[in-house]
């Protein structure tokens, strides 16, 4: 349970899809002009991530991983289908998004009007495929993977709503002309990411004591090892 909470909090704040990995930036920038649309797409992302991540986990662990097919017969135990992971993951995401869109349209027109238009956009949202592609590099169980998916979605939601709120306020400020729109948005996102980086320094209090310390180090280091090297060099130099 503590472990799950750990993964959940980490995927929202420390490993935030936007601020730590910059996944899903295109739609992030495109929909963050208005608070309402931002919240709509954010909800859709939580929903899709919460379901496609476990689906992709199943596909990876029972279909693609080396030896994953051994549940069919021992003859398949040496087969490694990992080459196909891109096609399988994207097919699952696209198919699921299409299905959801049709189901929502049929059963809940009200929800479709508020959410439905965003669903097709999501098939090409990097954060969905990105979350799936993180799975092979991390040894999650099914429950952990689901938690990770929901947490990442929530982190994305948080980021997009926050940026939309800032941009709505910013309509009244006097920004230099060439910087208006995209330019200033990037600088704001940079500053927000800088703020979120401070989460990386927190030791989560409910961390399990039995875990190996190396696994618990801020995941930004995992994303880019060089990054970590540079930072640690700086720290030692300052000392």
């Amino acid at each position: 349970m503590e472990n799950l909470l750990n993964i959940f909090v980490k995927s929202i704040f420390v490993d935030n899809m936007i601020f730590a990995y910059f996944l899903g930036m295109c739609s992030y920038l495109a929909v963050s002009k208005k608070y309402k649309t931002a919240a709509g797409l954010g909800l859709a992302v939580i929903f899709v991530l919460g379901i496609t991540v476990p689906l992709n986990w199943l596909a990876y662990n029972y279909l693609l991983k080396e030896g994953a097919l051994s549940w069919i017969s021992q003859d398949f135990a040496t087969i490694d289908l990992e080459v196909l992971k891109f096609i399988v993951f994207i097919a699952i995401v696209a198919a699921f998004v299409q299905l959801t869109e049709m189901a929502v349209e049929k059963f809940s027109p009200a929800l479709y009007n508020s959410l439905g238009i965003f669903l097709p956009l999501i098939a090409v949202n990097c954060s969905i495929l990105g979350a799936a592609l993180f799975l092979p590099t991390r040894d999650y169980t099914l429950v952990e993977a689901t938690t990770f998916g929901l947490g990442s979605g929530l982190g994305w939601f948080l980021a997009v709503v926050a940026l939309a709120a800032i941009r709505e306020k910013m309509a009244y400020s006097d920004v230099p002309k060439p910087l208006r729109g995209l330019g200033i948005t990037f600088i704001i996102v940079g500053l927000m990411a800088f703020g979120f980086m401070s989460f990386g320094g927190f030791e989560l209090p409910f961390k399990r004591t039995g875990d190996q310390p190396t696994e618990e180090v801020s995941s930004i280091e995992k994303a880019s090892t060089e990054d970590a090297v540079v930072q640690s060099v700086n720290i030692t130099e300052e000392k």
């Binding site: 601020f19 330019g183 990037f186 930004i220």
Partner: peptide
């Protein structure tokens, strides 16, 4: 002295913002 800020993802955003500024100006 290495500037750790440029190694962080946040710097990428700000640099891109500035590039956009220059190109659009």
């Amino acid at each position: 002295l290495n500037n750790g800020f440029f190694a962080t993802p946040a710097a990428a955003c700000i640099i891109l913002g500035i590039i956009i500024w220059i190109l659009r100006a």
